[in-house]
Simulated assay, not measured.
Amino acid sequence: MLFRLITVIRLSSPAIALQPAHRKETLKDLDIVVGNALAEIKAQELKEKKPNEEGLG
């Protein structure tokens, strides 16, 4: 997931530089993608953590 996130950011940089007229739209889309990726990472971490906590009880 993190690799995919880094790839999206890396590929977005040239798009922002080459299309300054669409920069705001591209940054907004990038913000959404990053937010979704971070939510997925957090959900996965919680999913992995939950079985460990259940085993302790």
Rank of each mutant, 00 (worst) to 15 (best):
V8A: 06
A43D: 12
A21Q: 13
E48M: 04
E40R: 08
R10P: 06
D31G: 14
V33M: 07
R23Y: 00
L5A: 03
K42H: 09
P51V: 00
K24M: 11
P20M: 03
A43H: 03
T26F: 14
E45F: 02
R10D: 13
T7G: 14
A21L: 07
K47N: 08
L38A: 11
S13V: 05
E25L: 08
N52Y: 08
L30M: 12
P20D: 00
G35F: 00
Q19W: 14
D29K: 04
N52H: 11
H22W: 08
E53S: 01
Q19Y: 13
G35D: 07
R23I: 00
T7A: 14
L18V: 14
A43P: 02
L56P: 03
S13P: 02
E53N: 01
S13F: 11
I16E: 00
Q19C: 10
M1N: 11
L18I: 11
V33R: 02
H22Q: 15
K50F: 09
I6L: 14
D29R: 05
Q44I: 01
A39V: 04
L2H: 07
L27W: 04
E45V: 11
G55T: 04
L27Q: 06
K49P: 00
K50L: 06
E45A: 06
S12P: 02
H22P: 03
V8L: 13
A15Y: 09
L2V: 06
L2G: 12
P20T: 02
G35I: 01
I41M: 09
K28L: 08
A39D: 07
G35E: 04
E45Y: 02
A21N: 10
E45C: 05
T26Y: 09
K42Y: 05
N52P: 12
V33Y: 09
S12M: 15
V8Y: 04
V34P: 06
L11K: 02
G55L: 02
A21D: 07
L5G: 02
S13R: 15
E25A: 06
D31W: 13
V8M: 06
L5W: 10
V8D: 01
M1V: 09
T26L: 15
I32F: 12
L46I: 06
K24G: 12
F3Q: 15
V33I: 09
V8C: 06
I41G: 05
T7R: 15
L38M: 12
Q19L: 11
E40L: 04
F3V: 08
R10N: 12
I41V: 01
G35W: 00
I41T: 03
R23M: 05
N36M: 10
A39R: 06
L38T: 09
S13M: 09
E25C: 00
I32R: 14
E25D: 07
P51F: 00
K28E: 13
K28Q: 10
S12D: 12
K49H: 05
Q19G: 09
K50D: 01
E45P: 02
I6W: 02
Q19M: 12
S13A: 11
A37K: 07
R10A: 15
K42V: 12
G55Q: 07
I9C: 09
E48R: 01
E40H: 07
V34R: 15
